[in-house]
Design a protein around this nucleic acid. Structure first.
Lengths: 121, 121
DNA sequence: AAGCATCGCTTGGTATACTTAGCGGGAATC
DNA sequence: GATTCCCGCTAAGTATACCAAGCGATGCTT
């Protein structure tokens, strides 16, 4: 088991290692900044382990590349782009979700209120 | 480490549960579509466990919301990132005003709630 | 009432993400 | 040569993500 044929984490590891060497950082240096242990980073880079999302995010931050890029490399982002979908109601939802100033609960509340309005129409 | 004060996973769980109930899905139904076990989904929704990224992605897909939204809810995407999604900046306020499905009164309500949230930050 | 289906949840276990300690090797400095 | 110091890696352990089985409650049907 543990093998579904597709091995996206291997490429993530290679990607990380490439970025790290491009930044002239040692394993321990990057691991330290990313707040993970250096052996673990080593294993990640060689595709032995599949890092969790927050580890991925920390590595991305330490490498100064966007978390989105990281997730895309890891195949964790659906290729679906939430771009300008034709609908008018979609944009309110995505605008709410994209607003960094709102907490999770606040977004939830706003969305519920909004959907309540729309569905009742 | 039982409580580190900050647990964004709790809000993720509440968000998922809200979305699930909004879609009128049972725990088992959603778990089945998301390809995880139903007890685990239950524990995720109650904030007992912190789901890994691919589980999050599967749940998002099952709920028909974007993986990005899910990660944002989970605090896994840096909120300061440039919203790489297409189009220009569409604020919540302008999106609400542009929505033809909402009455003027409803727009007012939504805007008031939204501004209350933002200004309190 | 008895029976069956489905609800959410608890229990107990397995798989794996992640850490601390330590190894062998190569480049300085003495 | 010996002594650090850094490199990447291995080994062994702990923590936790995740699953299968099953329980009590609720509701529907006979």
């Amino acid at each position: 088991m543990a093998n579904d044929g597709n091995d996206p984490w291997r490429s993530v590891g290679e990607f990380i290692r490439a970025q790290r060497e491009l930044a002239n950082l040692s394993l321990r240096q990057l691991a330290d900044v990313a707040k993970i242990s250096n052996p673990y980073l080593s294993q990640i880079e060689r595709g032995i382990h599949k890092p969790s999302a927050d580890v991925l995010k920390n590595i991305a931050a330490a490498l100064q590349i966007s978390a989105e890029t990281m997730y895309a490399q890891a195949g964790l982002l659906d290729p679906r782009e939430p771009g300008a979908e034709g609908g008018g109601e979609r944009s309110v939802e995505s605008a709410i979700r994209a607003d960094a100033r709102l907490s999770a609960e606040q977004k939830e509340t706003l969305l519920r209120v909004y959907r309540g309005f729309v569905e009742r129409a």
